[in-house]
Design a protein around this nucleic acid. Structure first.
Lengths: 157, 157
DNA sequence: CTGTGTGCAAACATTTTGCAAGCAG
DNA sequence: CTGCTTGCAAAATGTTTGCACACAG
């Protein structure tokens, strides 16, 4: 798996172009603005949110939701992006250009908070070693109710 | 978060009934068989799979997918169950009546090793608290190469 | 030019909602 | 009896596919 951690936009773009060429695919304006927007906003985007933003910022492009889906899936397939999903609320995507981190996810409103914990990562390594595994990666997602949703759930309703 | 770890079915059922009463909801056959089936099978169920199984095992009930969704959401909202998303497919639900165990997965041969680590669990709680989340569950999956496959991988490939 | 990419509309898949009838309390 | 619950059908939501035209290489 290619390591694109800490790449700046120019490097990322280069990586994307190489990857397209290798697969016999074409570099298009749509694909470019999707990559650029993901890079600039550094958030978890749902396809729908990203699409809305793109239509607003690049009205002339008249970009379709279909293209957004296709490009996000393309990025994920090639390890330039990662999606995290929570069922009915759909997937959210982020670029893989920053150091590894994990996610806290509110099961009520879908809010995502990132966190990083070196001690846990260390412990994971240790567990892997104990079982004679050579680690290549991991998923860790914590699910719960965020502050706002705890209030909502208890107060009214 | 209510602790329902290690409850047997009778206790779990009691907990469910109390919870329903507290919310002014009713105890119905549908809700009962859903709880019981989740308890018995001790797996991650998608709503469709659970629905299919329920229709097969309790044909007279003629249970609707709607009820399955509603009950699973009810259980999750009250922390008796947790839903997680495996990959790109929909949600899967499991009861919270067992201590959470996690998985080490060999990406080559698919072998799965279960493990449990109290320190990591504690740390996760701490992280959640720092972000004012009330935890309901988590996924932690470590991916890597198991001992046997490390040998194989080095030989060939 | 060639074949991939695009937007659109329609198809699909999954989950939620409106409703009339059923049933728990 | 009261009003929550249910199954059904329809709607809403999220995602993919077929197609004809556009465009990168």
């Amino acid at each position: 798996m290619k390591d694109i951690e800490n790449l700046n936009y120019k490097e990322l773009l280069e990586e994307f172009k190489i990857l397209l060429k290798e697969s016999g695919l074409k570099f298009t304006t749509q694909r470019e603005v999707i990559l650029k927007t993901l890079y600039k906003h550094d958030t978890h985007f749902s396809p729908e949110d990203l699409h809305r933003l793109l239509r607003k910022k690049f009205p002339k492009l008249n970009i379709g939701i279909t293209t957004v889906y296709r490009t996000l899936n393309l990025l994920e397939k090639n390890s330039l992006a990662t999606s995290i999903s929570f069922g009915s609320q759909g997937k959210k995507f982020e670029l893989n250009n920053k150091p590894h981190h994990d996610h806290l996810i509110c099961v009520t409103c879908g809010k995502i908070v990132e966190f990083e914990d070196k001690k846990i990562e260390k412990k994971q390594e240790k567990i892997a070693n104990e079982h004679e595994f050579e680690l290549t990666g991991h998923i860790m997602q914590l699910y719960g109710h965020c502050k706002e949703c705890q209030i909502k759930d208890k107060g009214i309703d």
